[in-house]
Nucleic acid binder design. Structure first.
Lengths: 218, 218
DNA sequence: AATAAATTTTAGACTTGTCTAAAAAACATT
DNA sequence: AATGTTTTTTAGACAAGTCTAAAATTTATT
């Protein structure tokens, strides 16, 4: 059994691994958990003793199979709870993260299986992120950052790279939601901003936005 | 904001107060939380500093208005979650306690209000205990322990005094559920056991059972 | 009222998880 | 290869919450 702190470390390492595929540095974990490198060093030793991470001093850390299974299970719980909050409790997609962050630590296998069923076995959370199945299998869809599309390419908005409520509220304000079709009409070289077509309306999108919006090309 | 440990103490004191109406002793709290009296002493000092309990050394403890409001809110959350588990996730009434014990500490006012709405603003949890409203008001119904009924008196089963899964499973096995009509047909003097009529079937009920089953007389 | 018994509090220690400051190792640069 | 910079680890401290053992207080009993 893992404490909430341990679970948060495992989840952080899991997310960092999916970006980098290298050993994860102490500093990277510290930054992602808003804590200090010294705290991370301490915790990593404990996780290593519990055989959920592989660790050589100064050499970074990787999840073991057990660690990855544990981490995907936490991610599964987080994302199922997010779906629950949006679908059943009328939360908006920018309100769910902090509550799901708490709910993901509730320990009950039956609870999560029944919740899954209640929600109709969803495959993606409200931000478009895939929900791992019971065995930890993640069905990743083929998606590209909006910033990688060329002029005249188009696709459907399928996810976000930044789940902060600021970003999500910004998207709401612009009328950008998952499922919407987006076409790139112009690209500015000097600031990498885009002109896009959405709902037959023309929008100007900064590079920062385009770097945080996932599109399934069509 | 209160820690989980603090919340558990407040809840324990709240439940003990509803039984005794006297200042609650350190020992009683320790017993109900399965901890040691010395730990209780320490925690009570902290709760007293936070002005949720009144405390004079060696004189026991009582909740302040703020303390009681905080405690009823935790009880409200606990009982709403129990209803959710039974009504939406197909838990049985003997499975909900431990999970609700975790869920009651989730911090989100919106979550609990929306959950209340999803469940149709229930007034009682699966064990027949009343659910405090948003303002902490508890609508207690008029109920009596089965053991206090006289021969030929009857009523409807409306609650249990013991929510342990052992007891609840025993009731299931005997076909005793909330809403069932029970009539006392005999009382044995030497062991205080009862003969009752339920679903037109005759059952023998020990005093221990009769002391943990609430009836609304009719 | 004095003594015994039970309860409650204090003192000191331990665990978990965090921090700061300093030391050690790795990396980068000339 | 030597030096400086960054990263990582260690050492020591702290807060929350718990424990055991001992001291203080209250309650019960003679």
């Amino acid at each position: 059994m893992f404490s909430q702190a341990e679970e948060n470390y495992l989840k952080a390492i899991y997310h960092l691994e999916s970006d980098s595929k290298e050993g994860i540095s102490t500093n990277a974990i510290a930054k992602s958990l808003a804590t200090k490198a010294s705290s991370v060093s301490d915790m990593i030793k404990k996780l290593s003793d519990k055989e959920v991470v592989l660790y050589k001093k100064y050499k970074g850390v990787t999840l073991t199979e057990l660690g990855e299974k544990t981490a995907t299970n936490i991610v599964r719980k987080h994302r199922l709870w997010e779906v629950f909050l949006v679908e059943k409790l009328n939360f908006s997609w920018d309100e769910v993260h902090d509550v799901a962050e708490q709910l993901e630590h509730i320990k009950s296998q039956k609870l999560i299986n029944q919740l899954d069923a209640l929600l109709g076995f969803p495959t993606h959370d409200p931000h478009g992120d895939p929900i791992p199945d019971k065995d930890g299998f993640v069905n990743a869809i083929d998606k590209s950052l909006l910033s990688t599309l060329n002029v005249d390419e188009a696709g459907v908005c399928v996810g976000v790279n930044d789940s902060s409520s600021d970003f999500l509220q910004f998207l709401d304000k612009k009328g950008i939601t998952l499922g919407k079709r987006i076409k790139v009409t112009e690209k500015e070289d000097f600031d990498d901003s885009l002109s896009i077509l959405i709902d037959d309306k023309k929008l100007s999108i900064s590079n920062k936005i385009a770097n945080n919006l996932y599109i399934k090309k069509s």
